[in-house]
Each structure stands twice: as structure tokens, then as C-alpha cells.
Design a protein around this nucleic acid. Structure first.
Lengths: 211, 211, 211, 211
DNA sequence: TATGAATGAGCCTTCATTCAT
DNA sequence: TATGAATGAAGGCTCATTCAT
């Protein structure tokens, strides 16, 4: 009998527990459980028992691969990389809109909880603090770099304006909405910011966008 | 001299505490200890033992006044009201700068920790969730309302611009800087945002400011 | 204003707390509260706070008069004396019935709880142990003594029978019913025992009694 | 000899406990500790620390197997089943004597304390209340059923007598003696009741019994 | 005397981590 | 390697009792 597709075997939540943590699919399965729980209850309230139960592993097994709760959380968050797509529309405002929307699209219901968990855990774990800094805004910023370079070349950035702030401002507004108000971010918020602040301030003519 | 000023008695850090919690100064002293600890370790890691120790009270005494850890935290945060000053300079950009700077001035080293503690605790306590929503941005927003109304009357808000976003954007940038990057916010950051984004975008001539 | 009838003043559950414990009515009021609580929650679960609240006194006041929880409970139970009436009907079986019924009549809903509380508290307090022994059966036994003497004189006690057991048996059955089964004892149970055991065994002709 | 008999390993009171609670002998050992403590201090005053200490286990270990103090007590009492032996001597009075004596023989020094603990705990725990009803008299009653049936067939039960009371009365007397007077029940008490009440009342000739 | 308030010593329960198989 | 089980060290909350007014 060939062992077949390990991932699909795991998906059948049937008995055959026995897949070792050396198996990457099994490892991912465990880390996904951790992510879910971090998002649901936060870092402090996450217990190793919860993880063991949801991942159907024994705590001792978890400790075999990850030496502490903090390191397990770090491993889980390391694996969770948000993705952002930069697209060249020829217009700074539209490029910004695309960037923000693509970033939002990657936010699942997990991410709000994870962001808070990351802040919580950062107090006591340096690795988590590093992840917090790296993950929450850096991906978007990096993607934005080339986009803003294009805009500068096209002369779309007014004199005296720090281009980075053109991304920073809408991004921060969206993140705050999520973290503080606790609401799910959506495309409408991005459009509102773009259309009622960035576009008029940058002197870009109003854009027709679908939906 | 009679038994005299209770507050001054408290200041002498002599053993025989014994000042009752019915004394407002003593109560404030305890709540301040709670605020410090919330800022230091967060809500989940805050223990009643810590509070008792720092406030030099027994846990039983604390429970006599506040029926649970959550309610104690709420009481502490209730007492900690941020303050913001609106000043009419005749110029939207300068009014904004003043508002943000006065808001920042109210941030002590506590506030970053408290903001995170508030997010942490919100997961499990509805009162804390309410406080999170009320405290983190509402005070600034309300102060901003009249300021923005003035600017609109003066015709300083460009067509198509949602005036609220003119506050929301710099404010969010500062808050994110604090929460995500973990840095102390300072006047320089406010000035940077105002001078390198808002002013040029709003077409306001560069302003000379001290420091 | 004359202070009037202290007891009636107490009954009006209005403000005028202030009656000192030196007042016997006030003292009785407190001890009644203790009895109620003992019956409701037992000895161990009785707290001084409960007593203070129900009696509308401060704990410190209670401790002024009674030096400990155990002594307060003892005082309350001391004051609660069951009463039994012996009546001469000329017939042993009917005398017994009357005795048991009069004893039962004195049982309020309190007594079951008190009996258990007494056993609970007896483990740690010698005074309560003494009360347990004295109160639970002695009153009835003493009342029974003369009754049984009369029966002996009338020749109603068969040869070889220990007269004390003629009381002890039905009494124990009723007490067990209460303590173990947790049911309220009633006249029907007494009648059943008398009519379906004592009377036939003693050769007494069946008696007509109203229900 | 291999690692061998777990029970004998337990008997050597050496340090390295480590025998898991999955081992029935170890489990019984723990539950026996609970029974002892229940008998000694009652239900309310029983603490998990006491159990842990006497059973040489950690509290956390206890909680792994039993989810609460109440359930642990229930488990201990469930395991402690009184036993009664019915023997056919051809004579109702002697059958009764045997029944009561065999029941008494099963009473260890524990049972008085347990009976009280059961009444205490019943106030707050429904499971304990059930146990109280089931354990304290039911075993004896059931054993008595067939015995009384035999007696009825033999015509040994006088007209008008409720046979159940013939057991209930002596049984209650003994139980009350134990619970109220706090004395150890012994064979002499049973003999006294049988010889000085039941036998003469039932018209059975005096019986010679040893000791 | 009556009381508002304080407190040391627990109590039940949980958790991250480690053993032994 | 995976796991069932054990545990020291808290953590939130309560209680009998004592102060101070």
C-alpha cells in the first residue's frame, strides 16, 4: 500500500493518528491549529492542552519539536506570511488602491486575532516582538517601495511629500479600524480612503470603480 | 495638628498603611498601581498578588472594593482619561498639529502598554471592549469635530475630501507607530506627518516651528 | 420620642439599626438569623458575612458578643429548644402516638438542616457535639420516662421488653426518615408506625384516629 | 523477577511514587485516602491538598482523573459499597439478628464519618444526595426483602404488622445510635434490641446466643 | 458599643513543562 | 518517535478574625 498523499490522509479526521511531526504536512497541520487558537483566544490564554487537543497530538510530542509555548507560537506565526500584489496601472492612486485591496484580501478572520496575540506575546518574548515588527507592516511597505518609485518617476508625487506616508496613512487607518474598532476591514473602507482623501488631495480625477 | 492630611500621610511610605480604600487618595493610589502593572505586563499576566504587593494592600482588601480582576482593571482604566486640547490658530494644518501634539503630551509611558492591555482584555471582558472603543480614538475625534468645522467654514478643506480622514490618517499613523513598532511617539513624528504629507497635500505653505 | 417596644421596633425592618446586642430581643433576632442560616447551608458553609448581612449587624459587633463562629452557632442552637408534651390517655400506644406527634409538631423546616449542621459542626467543636447528644433525642426521652412508668404500672409492657425501646424505635425511624431520606416527617408516618407495628405487636386493638 | 506486582510495589512506601492513576491499585489507594479524610473531617473541610498529601500525589494529578472535589468524593464513596448477608435460620428473629450483625460487621470506623459527610455534601451536590439515599439504607432493605418474604410464608409475621418496619425499627435505632450518640455500634446493641424488643413482641422464645 | 475596613491563610483549580513507556 | 500521566508553581477568590474610629 502506498502511503499516498499525506495531506489528504490527514484531512480525513479518522483514527490513523501516527503521522510523525517530521512530516511537513503534519507539522503544518499542527501550526495551523496554533494559528487558529492564537486568533481565537490570544497568546496568554492559549494553552498547550488546547493545541494538543485541536491538533490531536500529545503535549509531549509538541514539546519534542518546539521547546516552549513561545517558540511554538513563533513557529506558527513564522509560517503565516501575508501576501501582497503590486500592479502597475500607471496611476499612483489606483496602484495604491490595488495594493491595499490585495493586502486586505489576504486577511482572513484569523488576522485580527493574530495581530493582537502578537502584541500580547511581544511583551514577554523577544522573538514575538520581532515578528510583530516584521509582519504587520513590512510586507506591505516593501511591496509599496517599487510602486512609489514608479510614481515618483512619473512625477505623481507632489513636492514636499514623503511618499512613504502615502501608503502609511491609508494602511494605518485600515489597521486601526481592525484593531481598535474590532471591525472586519473591507474594500469599501479602502475605497473611501482612496476616493475621499488620497485622490482629491493628490489632485487625481475621480475614478470609476466597479462594485 | 490633628491627624491631618490623608494624602500627605500616604506619601510617607511608612509601614502602618491602614489608610482605608474609602479614602479617594488611597483608592487612586491603588488604581495607579493597577495601571502601571497593566502597562507593564498586560491584562492576562496581571495578577491580584502583583496589585496587592505594589499597592501594599491585601488581596482581600482589593476584593472588598472591586469584585473581580476585570472590574478592578476597568476601574483603573476608567479613571485614566486622556485629554486633548483644541486651539484655534486660524489654519487647519496648524490646528491639526496642535491637536495631535496635545494628545501626544498626554501619553505617558503607560499608554502603549495600556492600549495593548485593553485589546487583550477585550477578548474576554465586554466592559474592557467598550473601554477600548471609547478611549482609544473617541476623545481625539470629538475634539477634532469643532476644529474641522472651523476649517470647513474657512474653506480650507478641498472639494471631495472627507474632513474626518484628515485627522484619522495622522492619528492612525502615530498610534500604529506606537503599537506596532513599539516606539515612543514624539513631536517629531507628528511634525513629519504634518509637514511632509498634510501641509503639501493641502497646499499649505510650509510652517516654521520651533525645536 | 419614646423608644417604645424594642421588639416591635425591630420588626419594622426600617433603618433604625442601632439596637445594641445587650437588648435581649435584638440578641434573639441575631440568633434566629444564625439558626436559619445553619438550617439552610450547614455549619461549614455558614459565613460570618452571611450572619452579619441577615441580622443587619456588622461582623465586628457579632464578635463583640460571641468570640467565634463556633460559639455563635452554639449560642443559637442553645436557644432553640424543642418541646414535647406528654399526655395521659390511659393507653400506652396512644400515649406514644401523642408524644411523637407533639414532638413532630415542634419540627419546623429548620430542624432537619439544624440536625445535620449539628453533626457537621460536632466534628470540630466539642460544644456542638454536646449539643448534638443533648438535643436530638434527650428531650423526647425525658418526656417519655414518666409516660413509660405509667404504662408499666398499668401492666401494658410485655414481659422481657425494654420499655425505652418502645419509644426509641419509632423515634429513630422518624428521625432517619428525615435525615437520610430528606423528607419532611408528618403525622401519617407516625400513625403508620404506631398502627402497623407498635399496636399489633403490643396486642392493642386498632385505634380510630382522624387524620 | 520482572518489574512485577504493582500492588506490592505500592506497599513499599518508598519515595519514587510514579505509579500512574491508571493502575487500579493506585486508584484505589487514592480513593481510600479520600474515604479516610471524608470520615475524619467531613466533606466541606476536606481539601484537595489533604488528599494530595495523604495519597502522595499532586493535586494536578488528582484533577487529571477527577474533574472536581465533588466528583472525587463521589468516586470514593461509589467504591465503598456496604455489604450485607442474608442467612436462612428458619426463624424471623434470628434472621433479623444475622442481617443486622452482618451489616454492622461491614461498618468500619469510617462509616460514621462517611454518613455525616454524605449528609453534609448532599446539601450542595446532587450526586452526593443520590448516594446518601442509595447507600445508607437501601442495601440492607433489599437484603431484607427476601428474608421477610420467607418469614411471611412461615406465618411468622403477626396480623396487622408492616413487615418492613420490623427491619426499619432496629436498623434506625442502630444508625441513630451511631450518628447521634457518636458511639461505635456493636453486636451487643443489636442483641439488646432483638432480645428485649423484637423477640418478646413477636412472641419468639428467648434465644441463646454466644458471646 | 457598633461598625467600616483590613488582612493572613487558605481553597479549588489550571498550566507549562517533564517523565517513563 | 509519540504519548499517557505526573507535578510544582501559581492564580483568582473567600473566610474567620482583628483594627481603628
Amino acid at each position: 500500500m502506498s502511503s499516498g498523499d499525506a495531506a489528504s490522509a490527514l484531512r480525513e479526521t479518522r483514527r490513523p493518528r501516527k503521522v510523525p511531526l517530521s512530516n511537513p504536512d503534519r507539522r503544518r497541520e499542527v501550526l495551523d491549529a496554533v494559528l487558529e487558537l492564537l486568533a481565537e483566544v490570544g497568546y496568554e490564554r492559549l494553552t498547550m492542552d488546547m493545541v494538543a487537543q485541536r491538533a490531536r497530538a500529545s503535549k509531549a510530542t509538541l514539546y519534542q519539536r518546539w521547546p516552549s509555548k513561545a517558540r511554538l507560537a513563533v513557529a506558527a506565526l513564522e509560517q503565516h506570511r501575508p501576501h501582497v500584489i503590486d500592479q502597475d496601472t500607471g496611476c499612483l492612486v489606483e496602484d495604491l488602491r490595488h495594493l491595499l485591496v490585495s493586502w486586505l484580501a489576504g486577511w482572513t478572520h484569523l488576522d485580527r486575532g493574530l495581530a493582537i496575540a502578537l502584541m500580547e506575546g511581544s511583551r514577554t518574548d523577544a522573538e514575538l516582538a520581532r515578528l510583530r515588527r516584521e509582519r504587520l507592516r513590512r510586507p506591505l511597505r516593501q511591496a509599496a517601495r517599487t510602486m512609489l518609485a514608479r510614481a515618483r518617476q512619473r512625477g505623481q508625487i507632489p513636492d514636499g511629500v514623503d511618499a512613504d506616508l502615502l501608503l502609511e496613512m491609508p494602511l494605518s487607518v485600515v489597521l486601526m479600524q481592525v484593531l481598535i474598532e474590532g471591525e472586519q476591514p473591507d474594500r469599501a473602507l479602502v475605497d473611501h480612503i482612496v476616493d475621499r482623501a488620497l485622490a482629491p488631495l493628490l489632485g487625481t480625477p475621480p475614478h470609476e470603480h466597479d462594485e
